[in-house]
Amino acid sequence: MIGLDSLARLGRAGLALMAALGRSGVLFFQAVWGWPSGQGVKLWMRQVHFIGVLSLIIIVVSGLFIGMVLGLQGYSILVGFGAEQALGQMVALSLVRELAPVVAALLFAGRAGSAVTAEIGLMKATEQLSSMEMIGVDPMRRIIAPRLYAGFVAMPLLTAIFAAVGILGGMLVGVDWLGVDEGSYWGTMQATVDFRADVINGMIKSVIFGLVVTWIAVFQGYDLVPTSEGISRATTKTVVYSSLAVLGLDFILTALMFGRI
């Protein structure tokens, strides 16, 4: 009997997972359908301000420090081969291809994703979402869609800023402190970084990460148990699931983009 019970528990968990995936899919398509127009543009802009502009400080500071660390570590390895001229290439490729999309998405999940979940969750717990439906305002269009589209737009911009600031941070350490020639820092970088293969692929990654992170955040907020414990659980889930999704997707995308070389 115990075996049957645990089998039933497994089945229940699987059904709950499938149901949650289905609900999140429905939510996603409903929200995509609610493309902001007219009054919605203002709501969308407010969300871009909240999850984009206000994330700028953490993105710039982390980008600068990650670039500086890359410059320092890269120099200490490359100098062993007498190849410290290739520092620019190393810093730029690792930032543009991997670090900028992934780290920016992780920071974004912690900074903006959790806030979105908590906000929508509190709206649900205080029944603001139901009240909106009662007075004929579609919460998809009013609450969910602007946040989803804001994440979609803000993430690639934050990634580009992260990469640019990181490369400048690497130059600060490599060129100004450790004495790598400035010409070869930029020269090796320009000779090896390809616009389509590296920069555009990094941007594609960041668009997908932005979509996934805001989707998870919005769904967790919309689908939570409307209690204070439910909100705290959903906020935690947002950060954990987004981070796992970003890292897992990053491997898949990297295998698709760079696996054939």
């Binding site: 802009m45 871009v48 301000h49 984009g52 502009v53 700028l56 730029a92 543009v96 737009v153 803000a154 690639p156 911009l157 934050l158 580009a160 800023i161 990469a163 640019a164 600031v165 490369i167 930029w186 970088m189 320009q190 000779a191 970084v193 390809d194 616009f195 590296d198 920069v199 941007m203």
Partner: peptide
């Protein structure tokens, strides 16, 4: 603020395109 943010992002992208990837 949003306008400045988008401008900043686009400038960063142009920097990556022209200065980094040559």
């Amino acid at each position: 603020g949003v306008g400045a943010f988008m401008l900043f992002g686009i400038v960063a992208l142009i920097f990556l395109a022209l200065r980094v990837s040559g």
